[in-house]
């Protein structure tokens, strides 16, 4: 009885319940040490001049920001980031949607096909880079063979060494690895659509295309939008894949913002300038995250009504 009374008491909120705070505290501390403090350090560092291990740290005010805004390579990395983000979002979410629609059909061998299609998602970044570097190797890569079956070209393309092909290639590889996740999430939403809706549409004489347009699509659009934002963020943080596959080249055509940060810090040892570019990236991520949180709220509100 006493325990029951205690539950009722905390439920009615007459007594402040401290347990959740005690539980959350270690995590808040942990993330403060490893995430929040470094962000503050990064902010401070962006106002200084800190060539790692080369010169003493000096306060320089907004000089780094001045330099960044007039740095054409910074704007280049912004452009590359946007193209990479847009490209992977469209290809990965689009392929994920198609895969989910296919997996939502009944056919023989579906579970095998589903396992095969999930494969890239389980693959780590490093082996993914290895495989595709080999497949797209300009001398021995098997892709040369396939392309020359289809296109009448005399010479093997230079693939990731070609300034026009490098970025699309990186996008395709990133999407190859990412689409199964979007497919699995979409599939779980598709399977939660009540079958009565489809039967009702059928009774009303809807064609398959119409029932997709008027039944399926409205149900999955909120999820697709959320995944689109999520895919933007995943694309934004993509480092190992790009860095190891092209190193940002050729001619900086695949140098996204995160690659630029890394190169400023660990190739040029200009920690402050790297930190400054990092702050620009941080603002971008913050904006996208808020958009994501907003879309989520709206979806929950819609689901509740």
């Amino acid at each position: 009885m006493a325990a029951q009374a205690a539950i009722n008491k905390s439920a009615s909120g007459r007594r402040r319940d401290y347990l959740p705070y005690m539980l959350a505290l270690p995590i808040i501390l942990y993330e403060t040490i490893f995430i929040l403090i470094p962000i503050v350090q990064q902010l401070v560092s962006s106002f200084t001049s800190d060539m790692f291990g080369i010169s003493a740290v000096k306060w320089v005010g907004l000089a780094n920001y001045d330099r960044m805004l007039s740095d054409k390579y910074f704007w280049n990395s912004m452009r590359v980031t946007l193209s990479f983000m847009g490209g992977t979002v469209i290809v990965a979410v689009g392929a994920g949607l198609i895969a989910a629609l296919l997996m939502n059909q009944n056919f023989r061998g579906r579970s095998v096909a589903r396992a095969i299609m999930t494969l890239p998602w389980a693959f780590p970044d490093l082996p993914t880079v290895l495989i595709f570097m080999w497949i797209f190797n300009p001398s021995f890569g098997v892709m040369n063979l396939f392309v020359r079956w289809i296109l009448p070209i005399e010479q093997n393309p230079k693939w990731m060494m070609d300034i026009n092909l490098a970025l699309p290639l990186v996008i395709m590889i990133a999407a190859w690895k990412a689409f199964p996740f979007y497919g699995l999430v979409t599939l779980s939403v598709l399977q939660s659509i009540p079958s009565e809706l489809y039967e009702a549409a059928k009774v009303d004489g809807a064609t398959r295309l119409q029932s997709f347009r008027y039944v399926t699509l409205p149900e999955i659009i909120p999820t697709l939008m959320l995944m689109g934002v999520l895919a933007c963020i995943f694309a934004f943080r993509q480092f190992a894949l790009i860095f190891l596959f092209t190193g940002g080249g050729p001619a900086r055509t695949t140098e996204t913002l995160v690659v630029a940060v890394y190169k400023a810090a660990f190739n040029s040892f200009d920690f402050s300038y790297g930190a400054t570019i990092g702050m620009a990236g941080f603002v971008a991520v913050f904006a996208i995250t808020l958009l994501f949180a907003y879309l989520q709220r709206r979806q929950e509100a819609e689901a509740a009504s």
Partner: peptide, 12 residues
Amino acid sequence: MLPEALIVIPLY
């Protein structure tokens, strides 16, 4: 959501 690369410098 935070890209690792954005805080690799201060952490390092």
